[in-house]
Structures are given as structure tokens and as C-alpha cells.
Design a protein around this nucleic acid. Structure first.
Length: 571
RNA sequence: CGGGGCAUAGCUCAGCUUGGUUAGAGCGCGUGCCUUGGGAGCACGAGGUCGCCCGUUCAAAUCGGGCUGCCCCGACCA
């Protein structure tokens, strides 16, 4: 590719509506352009990266025994009605009618479509297992598209669905996909972590998310370097503490203290010189329409996904100030568990607490030496607070590491939810008809591109991992008007291409600084700079990632790049 | 959908508070000169129904109302 002919519109300034590095840089470096909220044009450089990502996915999926298909993105409503998701999925789906007035949707995911295909064609256990995948456009009318490609309304996804005769076989395939995904993200050169995840709407026994580690990630995760435990904070569990022996013997007398205008935990902590760990935080939640109190240790935060699961409810939200007063008869900021009329669920973190501080149920007063069991009744101890870095691992007790991540892959065991709803059955070796057991496995292809940038960039621009870079090498003649420089650059360009590298030559008649800036911004791993020493047959290789520079003879450029690549792969 | 903000040249933004000549700058774009190891310089030039509609006024980018689009904060997810 010749830069002078390439459609690579770079720019010096970031668009005003871009917030995070990947969004800014992908636009500045000419990979994408915004069409409308959550909709992006993918430009040639972007397409090159996506193709590379897709190629790795295809190779690994095929190797794992999956087969590629391509289903329509326009889904007939009947299938979604049949699975019961036409209304459940609701506003997230783009729905429309054709000229005959029939309902359709643009597919946000394809369980129905694939199940319909398989139920029609597969009747016997002899045809199972089956793992089918596709790579293509998906549409979700997100409530709030944001962060560029990270949460777009139209995006590219690899979605795979597997069908099995038994739960055991579905589980075997689940772990097959787990290994496959690990290989995929490793090959892409990304730092990632597979974590236990909440199964959400889909349900099922377990599920893993694949997170690309990045500070700007929307998801939080914790992992244990000692035993390997890793989980999304929506899922990460706390070990249930033992109730201390003879705790009653430590109980002190309940006391009411005047705490004028002291509401927040930090304020209470400071005013009474009590650490937050010995203050009870009481929150009122509306769960499926009913008010409940949730008690947690003062330094902990409620994780609503866990709360939802622990209480086995669909909807969870914090009560408004008005609702708090109405349901508890107590003022916000001084809520007391003592004499509270609504049920109190207490987090595990409350179990070991003794003689703690809590609100007194009236303005400007707190209670000291409060004890659960004596002063109020806990309806149930539940695990509902967010696990953080530093907390003990629930498996082995070692301190957990906390990180932020970008969810780029998710694998689920679906069970028979869709096969039962849609009557996808097979006949087993005993002639018995059974529903197929399913699994599903997604990778956000466009999101991977954004995540890769989020994880690999610096002040000058993108730093692509070699495997998914739009080009491996950019050849930069510093002055195309000087024959020796231009000719040497052209020679290197052709040689590298012949040697199998993806290479672009910056043959534009521009000043060197201008070209260097573009090369850094676009993030091509190797820059071959052809300058002053070209007449002596010496050029410079600059490594984008490290900034290292090497002077090498013209005929050893490919060799040197190979050496560098080899040394990286050994790390 | 709730809360907040923005909308002026391709991009980033001034001007608006206190209405009044021909609406500006930098970057980018075109032409010429000059320049070639980190987004050079000079000259000339093109480019705008000031998001849309309604209103107030002798007069609206500027004041008021409505609409639309976009962004940020919460519930969703690859």
C-alpha cells in the first residue's frame, strides 16, 4: 500500500465528543468515523484490523471443531415470539415491518435463528454435537451508546452456538470454548483474564467473561494470584465468616450519642473516632416493588447484581429519600436497624461485627454498641457487597488483585431454555425424544479493536499488537525528492512485501516530522526510516512499542525485524 | 427513560452576558514560493441559510418558546 493513494484521513485534534483514548485515537488515526450516535463508518485501516481479528477467530474456532455459517440479520418476529423474547428483549431490538406488514427485527443475537435451523435439520443423536458460528453485524438499540466502538448500536460480533445430547457434553464443549477463547485473545497479543461471571437473564449454571485489562474498562474484576480464582465483581463471592464464639459476652450497653449534622460514614467515623469497619451502613432498596433494608459494613459497597440474585428478584433500585421516610418512618442519614419495620438483610461483612455504630432513627443521633441479634433481627445474612482488591480470596484466603477490564468475550451454558421453548429435540440411542442441550459463545469483534487500543497506546498514538496491526511495517523515506532515499525505500518496500510482511510506504511529499507523527499515531509496530545514510546502504528501524532504534544495512531489514519478533515471542 | 450540558467553516473553538456595519481565529483544504530527521514559513484564495421552526423587535448568531441532533452521569451488554 502506498500512503499517497491510501484513504487514511488523520487529524491533529480529537473530536469534541470523544472521551476515552480508543475513541479519540481510532478517529484521529483514520480508522473510523462517526455516522450517528452509536453508528460508525469503518475506514480501510479499521477494516484491515478487523479482518486480522476475524482471521484469528476463524482459525481457532475451526480448529476447535466449530463450523462457520451466515444467518440473516433480519429476523422474522415469529421466532422471537416463539422463544418468548419478542417482548422481553423489548426496546433493545430494532423492530420494523416489511411491505406486507409482517414484523421483523434486526438481530441483536441469534439463539432463535440458529435453534430454528438446527431443529429442522437435526433429528438424531448421531448428528450431535454441533457447534455453529458466524461473524457479522449485530444491532442493539442501546439505551446509551458511548465510548465509540466500545458500546455501539451496530457492531460486529462472532457468535457461536453449540448443541449437545447431554449436559456433560455441553459442559465439555464449554471448556473447549474456554480454551479456544484463551488462545484467541492470547494470539491477539492482549493482556486478558477469564473471570467467573453473572449469568444474567440467560441463567444457567455458570459463565465466564473474557476481559481485556484496561484502566478505562467499564467492568471490574478480581483475581487471586495464588490459587487462580478470578471473577467479575458482579459475581465475586465473599467467604462467609464464622460467627465469633461467645460474642454475647463482649456486648456492651447500647448508648445513644448526639451527632449533630453527621450523616455520611466518613463523617460519623471522624466524629466518633470509630473506623468505618465498625459502623453499620443501612440502605433501603425497592425490590420488585417492596422496601427492604440492606445492612453492610461501613467500608463496603452494595453490588446490585449480587443483591438481585441473593434476594431472587428481578428489579432492584435504591429507594428515593421520600420512599425511605415513608417506609421506615426514619430520616435519611440516621437510619437505625433497631425497631425497623421492614425486613433487614445483612451482608456477610456484618456477621463478625460487635458493638458497632448505627443511626438512631432520629435526626442528629447515632447509637453505639449496637449488636445484631440483641438489638435487631437479621432476616437473612446474604453476600451482597462488592469484592475489592485486597479482600481475601474466597477459595484460598490470599489477598485478591483488583483490576478494571473490557468485556470482549462471554461464554454461557444455556441448557435447554431455547431448545425447550422452540422444540429443538433429537432422538437418543434408546429412541427417546429429548431437548438438545445448548451453549453460546460470543466475541465482540469491533469491541476487541477498541479494547486493543485502550490497552495499547501512549501520548503519541496507538501501539498495535503485531498480530492485529493494520500493517506490520511502515517504510518512511524522509525525503522523496532525493533519488537515493526514494529508491532505497522502494527497494525495501518491495523486499518486505516479498518476505510476507504487510507493509505500507509513506511516499508522500511531506516533511519527515509530519510522517513520523502519522506513523506513531496510526501505531504500526515497525518503522523503517530511510534517511541520510541511505547512500551508504544503512537505514533505521524504530520499534513503536519501545521506541528502540536500530541502524541496519538495507539487505538485513527483514532479518532484523524477524529477530525482534522472535525475541518478543520468547518473553 | 430520568438528571446535566452543548449545537457558529471539514476539525477545535471565539463572538452571545449588554441585539445594530462585511460573523472571526487556529488547524485542515487549493495555488505559488520556500523547506525536508519530529505535525515548518510567507503570500494569495476557496469555504457559513450561525442545527430547525415559531415568536419578541425597526433590527436576532445574540433575547423567549418549541423541536431535533449530539455528549456526559445512572439501569443494559460482545
Amino acid at each position: 500500500m502506498r500512503f499517497s493513494r491510501a484513504f487514511i484521513p488523520t487529524m491533529k485534534e480529537s473530536p469534541a465528543d470523544a472521551e476515552i483514548p480508543s475513541h479519540k485515537l481510532l478517529i484521529r488515526a483514520g480508522f473510523i468515523r462517526k455516522k450517528a450516535s452509536g453508528l460508525y463508518d469503518i475506514l480501510p485501516l479499521g477494516v484491515r484490523v478487523l479482518h486480522k481479528i476475524e482471521r484469528i477467530i476463524r482459525e481457532e474456532m475451526d480448529r476447535a471443531g466449530a463450523q462457520e455459517v451466515l444467518l440473516p440479520i433480519m429476523h422474522p418476529a415469529e421466532l422471537w415470539i416463539e422463544s418468548g423474547r419478542w417482548d422481553v428483549y423489548g426496546k433493545e431490538m430494532i423492530k420494523f415491518k416489511d411491505r406486507h406488514g409482517r414484523d421483523y427485527a434486526l438481530g441483536p443475537t441469534a439463539e432463535e435463528m440458529i435453534t430454528d435451523l438446527v431443529r429442522k435439520e437435526v433429528k438424531s443423536y448421531k448428528d450431535l454435537p454441533l457447534n455453529l458460528y458466524q461473524i457479522g453485524g449485530k444491532f442493539r438499540d442501546e439505551i446509551r451508546p458511548r465510548f465509540g466502538l466500545m458500546r455501539a448500536r451496530e457492531f460486529i460480533m462472532k457468535d457461536a452456538y453449540s448443541f449437545h445430547v447431554s449436559d456433560e457434553d455441553a459442559e465439555r464443549e464449554y471448556w473447549n470454548m474456554y480454551e479456544t477463547y484463551s488462545r484467541i485473545f492470547k494470539r491477539m497479543g492482549l493482556e486478558f483474564k477469564a473471570v467467573e461471571a453473572d449469568t444474567g437473564e440467560i441463567g444457567g449454571k455458570f459463565s465466564h467473561e473474557f476481559m481485556v485489562i484496561a484502566d478505562t474498562g467499564e467492568s471490574k474484576l478480581v483475581y487471586c494470584e495464588k490459587c487462580g480464582y478470578a471473577a467479575s465483581t458482579e459475581k465475586a463471592v465473599q467467604k462467609r465468616p464464622e460467627v465469633p464464639e461467645n460474642r454475647e459476652s463482649e456486648f456492651k450497653e447500647l448508648q445513644k450519642v448526639h451527632t449533630p449534622n453527621v450523616k455520611r460514614i466518613e463523617e460519623v467515623s471522624e466524629f466518633l473516632s470509630v473506623p468505618p469497619e465498625n459502623i453499620l451502613k443501612l440502605l433501603v432498596y425497592i425490590v420488585d416493588g417492596e422496601a427492604v433494608a440492606v445492612a453492610v459494613r461501613g467500608d463496603r459497597e452494595v453490588e446490585e447484581t449480587k443483591l438481585k440474585k441473593a434476594l431472587k428478584v428481578k428489579d432492584v433500585r435504591l429507594a428515593t429519600d421520600e420512599e425511605i421516610e415513608r417506609f421506615t418512618g426514619q430520616p435519611k442519614g440516621f437510619l437505625s436497624p433497631v425497631g425497623l419495620s421492614i425486613p433487614i438483610y445483612a451482608d456477610y461483612s456484618v456477621i463478625p461485627m460487635v458493638n458497632f455504630v448505627a443511626g438512631a432513627g432520629e435526626v442528629d443521633y447515632h447509637l453505639q454498641n449496637v449488636n445484631w441479634g440483641r438489638d435487631f433481627t437479621v432476616k437473612e445474612f446474604v453476600d451482597v457487597t462488592e469484592v475489592k482488591g485486597g479482600d481475601p480470596c474466597p477459595k484460598c484466603g490470599a489477598p485478591l488483585v483488583g483490576k478494571r477490564g473490557i468485556e470482549v468475550g462471554h461464554i454461557f451454558k444455556l441448557g435447554t431454555k431455547y431448545s425447550e421453548a422452540m422444540n429443538a429435540t433429537f432422538v437418543d440411542e434408546n429412541g427417546v425424544e429429548k431437548p438438545m442441550v445448548m451453549g453460546c459463545y460470543g466475541i465482540g469483534v469491533t469491541r476487541v479493536m477498541a479494547a486493543a487500543v485502550e490497552q495499547n497506546h501512549d501520548d503519541d498514538g496507538i501501539i498495535w499488537p503485531y498480530e492485529i496491526a493494520p500493517f506490520h511495517v511502515i517504510v518512511i523515506p524522509v525525503n522523496v525528492k532525493k533519488d537515493e532515499i526514494r529508491d532505497t525505500a522502494e527497494e525495501i518496500y518491495e523486499t518486505l512485501q516479498r518476505e510476507g510482511f504487510d507493509v505500507i510506504i509513506d511516499d508522500r511529499n511531506a516533511r519527515p516530522g509530519f510522517k513520523f507523527k502519522d506513523a506513531d499515531l496510526i501505531g504500526i509496530p515497525f518503522q523503517v526510516i530511510v534517511g541520510k545514510r541511505a547512500p551508504e546502504g544503512i537505514v533505521e528501524i524504530k520499534v513503536r512499542k519501545s521506541g528502540e532504534r536500530f541502524e541496519v544495512p538495507v539487505n538485513e531489514v527483514a532479518k532484523k525485524i524477524r529477530e525482534l519478533l522472535y525475541s518478543w515471542s520468547c518473553q
